[in-house]
Design a protein around this nucleic acid. Structure first.
Lengths: 220, 220
DNA sequence: AATAAAATTTAGACAAATCTAAAAATATTA
DNA sequence: TAATATTTTTAGATTTGTCTAAATTTTATT
């Protein structure tokens, strides 16, 4: 089965929203898609007809198994292309999202598989997000956000929650990238900000909001 | 200026047709695009409004300078992606056309320039067609079809005229690829077929139709 | 529970790109 | 050159994805 660009975009967004909230509602999807609630309703009818969606009028909706697999196919393509753009074409990681949004809709199955092999079958994209395999299986990693790590413990940055250009720009400024060794020196109770130490850098302070979006795992 | 996928496809086809015939007419473009003459007329009006086309009703049409530049941008992307698919992803050269038809519409200028650099700024695509540079300048090469080459002279295959999957499949069977050294041993006047010798292969016979689509240049 | 507010859906419209059928213009030929 | 054939354009319809405004349903509040 293949889908239009618009269908794929809706499917992908619904997938991400239902990861957080279970059932998805019309207005939140409209906000994510930067469109109107009426347009969402129109598309929901189409996706239900194509048997990708559990949906009852006024009751919310979520992808069924077929819908989730379709979403994971798009997510897989998006993240493989992001990996390509950063690792092969040397793009900065905060510049690749929009381009990957276009590339993810290229339809050839064989292209995706060859790209995957060419890249060395990576498990995580440049933002640390897991890349589903061709069957939709997602690699797991034990990670916590920086705010929960014991003081002085050295850990490795594994992914970033908020992936806005603004956030990625800020992390670049702090010299925080995937794989960066990092430790928390002090927690300020006043506003939850943290004094941190990045390898080879002076200690500095990050806000609680930043800390919650930096995910880390134990050093291997 | 950026264009829709449909506009880009029309622009590209008009470019190729006008290379052969100067002025292009509605029916031949409709045939190339596998659409109806009425649809072509509709698009011609749009392209004229966007000042890409010299067009007078019933009189035929051709791209102006802006139109040609737009066409060359698409051709450049198409050929760079074909090069990528064959040289990096190891696709057979007869399998890449359809995928490149999708990739050529990805819009990022920076992507194209980085891809070009990543590939080593190639001058010719896997079918031997020249790749325009970012300014639309096309590399030239002195080439003739196999039918016009003196007997026994060893030349190098530089490009292929007819790029249908059928033709490319046939050339694969003859072990003719770009860069293959080749010579003509005998010309049969009866039907114009040629006995040829491909390096490391037994002599064999190709039809006049094949010969006319195999372009060669002098060995460097 | 009645009413107000919020969320969602329906109805009807629009733009892009296509189509069919018919009309108009041009080209061919007897 | 008049009749015929071919090519091209116009007129109007269709599909996809979107929109606005109004109607409906659900949820929250007094």
């Amino acid at each position: 089965m293949s889908y239009t660009v618009s269908e794929e975009n809706y499917i992908k967004r619904i997938y991400h929203l239902q990861q957080e909230t279970g059932l998805v509602n019309t207005n939140s999807l409209a906000a994510e898609m930067q469109t109107r609630a009426a347009s969402v309703t129109d598309m929901l009818k189409k996706l239900k007809t194509k048997k990708l969606l559990q949906y009852e009028k006024y009751k919310g909706f979520k992808l069924n198994e077929a819908g989730k697999k379709a979403a994971l196919d798009v997510v897989r393509k998006h993240r493989l292309w992001e990996y390509f753009l950063v690792e092969k074409l040397q793009f900065d990681w905060d510049k690749v999202h929009a381009i990957a949004e276009e590339l993810e809709h290229i339809s050839s199955e064989e292209l995706v598989q060859r790209l995957d092999n060419f890249l060395g079958n990576p498990s995580f994209d440049p933002h640390g997000d897991p890349i589903p395999d061709r069957n939709g299986k997602i690699p797991v990693i034990n990670q916590q956000n920086l705010g929960t790590i014991p003081l002085k413990k050295i850990v490795t940055v594994s992914s970033v929650g908020n992936q806005s250009a603004e956030m990625l720009d800020m992390l670049k400024h702090y010299h925080i990238a995937l794989g960066t060794p990092i430790s928390v020196l002090k927690r300020f109770e006043f506003d939850g900000s943290l004094e941190i130490k990045v390898l080879h850098r002076n200690a500095c302070i990050i806000s609680e909001q930043v800390a919650k979006n930096v995910f880390v795992h134990d050093v291997q």
